[in-house]
Amino acid sequence: MKKMLSMTVNGAPLEVAVHTHATLAEVLRGELGLTGTKVGCGEGDCGACTVLLDGEPVNSCLVLALQAAGRTVTTIEGLSAEGAAAGESLHPVQAAFVEAGAIQCGFCSPGMILSAAALLRRCPDPTEADVRVALSGNLCRCTGYQKIIEATLAAAESLATSHAGDNSDREGGRP
């Protein structure tokens, strides 16, 4: 049985017909082609399928697609697009992961990066403990946690610097 689903994905409102039993992860990957969202365990243990639902990280394998009706979903593709909109090829958190070597096989990276990005939006100046809690629902099988934590802290710094730059621009009288 299919029903129409209206939601906003990565800033774009869309409508798609989905099975009532389809998960959000299945629709993002299978119907919308957004394969940056990975599915690992399918039970909410690994966090590979993490997306932001109204800005909050959730396991998209544990959300029925229809439960996203009327809500906003951000996937890793949407985060890249934010970076592109700012004139960079990647979002600052993605760039920090690349720079720190926080990616090995890459399967956990989209989920890790979305969890990190959600943390930095809520808490721009996190402690290492804050980062560890925020990433505690994302498993990395390449045991790259230390670099991932360092990358998240580095991203916080680079975002703070760029925001400080924005402020000085404003103070400089630019519109």
Partner: peptide, 9 residues
Amino acid sequence: MGSPQVRNR
């Protein structure tokens, strides 16, 4: 309980 993702749901 769970993880941040689970606690959000």
